[in-house]
Write a protein that binds this DNA or RNA. Structure first.
Lengths: 124, 124
DNA sequence: TTTGCTGCAAATTATTTGCATAGTA
DNA sequence: TACTATGCAAATAATTTGCAGCAAA
């Protein structure tokens, strides 16, 4: 475990919302190369410590966002106005997943789910 | 409505699975420029005729996949072995969405959901 | 010492855009 | 005719990779 990876996983663990590679690079005060950030993210994702989803937002463009994996894992809501992510607590898709497996004869291993809309502050 | 857009929406409408811009370009036998395909896709997505999600697959890399919007809309399962998309019928997230709106005080406008795993042929 | 990580720079790839031309209403 | 889409080529931007040097075990 190198300094760069320690810093990386610490930042992800303490973040309350998913972060892009660029976000993390900035939070590290650019002490490590962007390529190092990407390699670290891929490493942790392969380990299963981190998971990610690709998200498009008019302001930020399309980027991959990374967050610490929990069990059961978490999904996020993205506010289209203030562009913040809000954690929606633990995943509630188990029942649906089992129904879909039965109905369509597939074995589901993973899913990606996120929501967009307006948060309470931006709705008013 | 131009020829290029007619061809584009016809291909998407007849496809049983989401297609990438590259897929569509090939299905058009490259009669139209890739830039034209992208512009057409953005046009139809803004119209609400088409929707899309960004999907990463080891074989294909990260690409945006487009499909015809239905009401209620559809989600897809992607087989990690044969790399085919399977439609999972109409969306069953309404109840969960309302629960989440109540629990987290947000107004959900959209969601993105897809599953990965093994299809029945590849599971054996 | 040996293996694997990092920095740097360059490559890759999906997607977008500027501009002149062609097509549509 | 007037407006908008298309083709082509170049630009963007996120992410990956080769290679040489450095750090960790």
């Amino acid at each position: 475990m190198t300094k760069a990876r320690k810093a990386l996983i610490e930042i992800i663990t303490e973040a309350e919302a998913p972060l892009s590679a660029g976000d993390i690079h900035v939070l590290m005060e650019q002490r490590y190369d962007l390529a190092t950030v990407y390699r670290g993210l891929n490493y942790f994702e392969k380990q299963g410590t981190v998971e990610s989803f690709t998200f498009s937002c008019s302001r930020e463009g399309t980027e991959r966002y990374y967050y610490r994996r929990a069990h059961p894992h978490t999904h996020f809501f993205h506010c289209a106005s203030c562009h913040r992510f809000i954690s929606l607590g633990t995943c509630r898709l188990q029942d649906l997943e089992h129904q879909l497996e039965a109905d369509h004869d597939v074995a589901i291993q993973e899913h990606t789910l996120y929501f967009t809309g307006l948060c309470s502050s931006c709705r008013d």
